[in-house]
Design a protein around this nucleic acid. Sequence first.
DNA 1: GCGACATTTCGGCCAATGCCGAAACATGGG
DNA 2: CCCATGTTTCGGCATTGGCCGAAATGTCGC
Lengths: 236, 236
Amino acid sequence: MSNIASGNTIAAVAALIGDPARANMLSALMGGQALTAGELARHAGVTAQTTSGHLARMADAELVVPQKQGRHRYYRLASPEVARVIEALSVLAAEGPKRHHPVGPRDEALRRARTCYDHIAGRLGLALADSMQECGHIVLADGAGIITSAGTRFLAETGINLDSSPSKRPLCRTCLDWSERRPHLAGRLGAALLTRLLDLKWIARTPDSRALRITKAGESGLAQTFGIPHDWHSRP
Amino acid sequence: MSNIASGNTIAAVAALIGDPARANMLSALMGGQALTAGELARHAGVTAQTTSGHLARMADAELVVPQKQGRHRYYRLASPEVARVIEALSVLAAEGPKRHHPVGPRDEALRRARTCYDHIAGRLGLALADSMQECGHIVLADGAGIITSAGTRFLAETGINLDSSPSKRPLCRTCLDWSERRPHLAGRLGAALLTRLLDLKWIARTPDSRALRITKAGESGLAQTFGIPHDWHSRP
DNA sequence: GCGACATTTCGGCCAATGCCGAAACATGGG
DNA sequence: CCCATGTTTCGGCATTGGCCGAAATGTCGC
C-alpha cells in the first residue's frame, strides 16, 4: 500500500481545480494579470457569492493570493508552480478525446499572440524563440534553454533584465504552446521579455482577454531587433 | 469572457484526478509499472467494484490504458503527459500548507532510490545526474539538459540506447525531486538509464513499492561507471 | 454621514457521485 | 466440467458540495 497521504493531498489540489467555475477562474488568471473577484465571477459564469466562496477556498489552499485594493479585491495565481499545473492539464485536455476547436476570430487573435501566465505565447512567442535561437543567443533543448554569452550581451543591449529575481526560478525554460504545439520561451527570461516588450510599448494587453496586440512601434522594433519581417502580420 | 470550453475540459481532467481513490491509483502508477485492477484497489483503499468504476472512467478519459492479460487486467498511465500533471500536482501539494511528513523507514527507502514513472528519483537519481554533469556528459539548465558529444560516447559505451524512441518525447529533461527538492534526470535519457540499470541488475524493483534496491553488483558498477563511492550507501 | 458599488456570510435546495452488497461475467486450473 | 479467482454490472444509500436569494460588511465619492 503506497503512501495514501500524498495521494490525498494531490487529490485535494486537483479537486479544487476540478470544478468548472474554479477552472475557468484559474484559466483566466493564466493571463498573468491580477483580476478582481467580480471579473472572475464573469469569467466563471457564476454569481458573485458563489465566486467568493470559490476564491476563499483557493486562497486557503494557496492556489491564488488575494490583494486588497480599495473596495476591490484582486486575485492572482500564487506561484509559477500553480501555472505549471494548469499548463500541464491544458496539454492533456487538448490532446485527449479528439476535440476540434472551431477557429473563431477571437481564437485567431489568441493564436497570434497572447500571454501565458507571465510570458508570451502564440505565434509571436514562437517567432521570438526561433529568432533568438537562430541568432545563437540561446540554445533550446527539451523543455529548457541555455543563454549563450552572445545572448547575455544581446539581452543587456536590449534592456532585458534578468538579475532582479527571487533566485530559485528557472532562468529559461520552455512551455508547450497550446495552439501551435511547439515550445516557446518561459521562465525568468520569458517573463523579462514580456515585461520589456510591454515597457517598450511594442505590444499591449487587451482588456478582458489574454490576447496581445502588436503596436506600430512594435512592428518596427520587432523587425529590427528580432528580425521578424513586417509582413509577418499578414501571414497564417 | 474567456474561453469556457477549455476551462471545462481541464476541469474534467482535474476532477477525475481530484478523487482520493483515483489519485492514489495514479500515484501508484507513477511507479511506471502496469498494475492490476486488484492491486490498484488495494492502493486506493476501496473495494474492487468501486475501483472498476474509477478505472473505466479514467480509461475513457485516456488517463490510463488497460491491457488484458489472462484473467487480470493491467492498467498503466496513458502517457508521459499524464505523469507530468501528477508530478506538477505533487510539487504543489508538497509545498502548500506546511506539511511535515514524518520520516518512517519505508519513506527512507523511497528517499534513497525510487522510480518516478519511467526514470530514477531519490538520492540515487540526484547522484547520477550530478555525476554525469560533473564529467561533462550533460549540461543541465532549468528543467532540461543537453547531451554533449563526450556524453554521447559515454552513453554508447555504457550500453544506454536512446535512438529507439517514438520521436517526439524530450530527450533529456529534468524532474523536480519530491523528497530532495532538486532536479534529477527524466525524459528519454532518464528512461533509458533506468532500463539499462535494471538490465544490468545494478538496481532492482521492490514488490508493491516504488522503492529501488541497489544490488551488490550495482554498488561496484555505480562506483566504477558513475564514480558513486562505496560508502555512499551509509551516508545521509 | 449617505447612497452606490464590491464583496462576503448565511441558509437552504438540489444534483452529482462515491461507496458498498449482491450477483453476473470471464478465465485458467484441476 | 466445475470451482476458484479476478473483474465488471446493477441498485440503492448517504454524503458532498455547488448554486442562488437575502442580507450583512466594507469602501469610495460626495
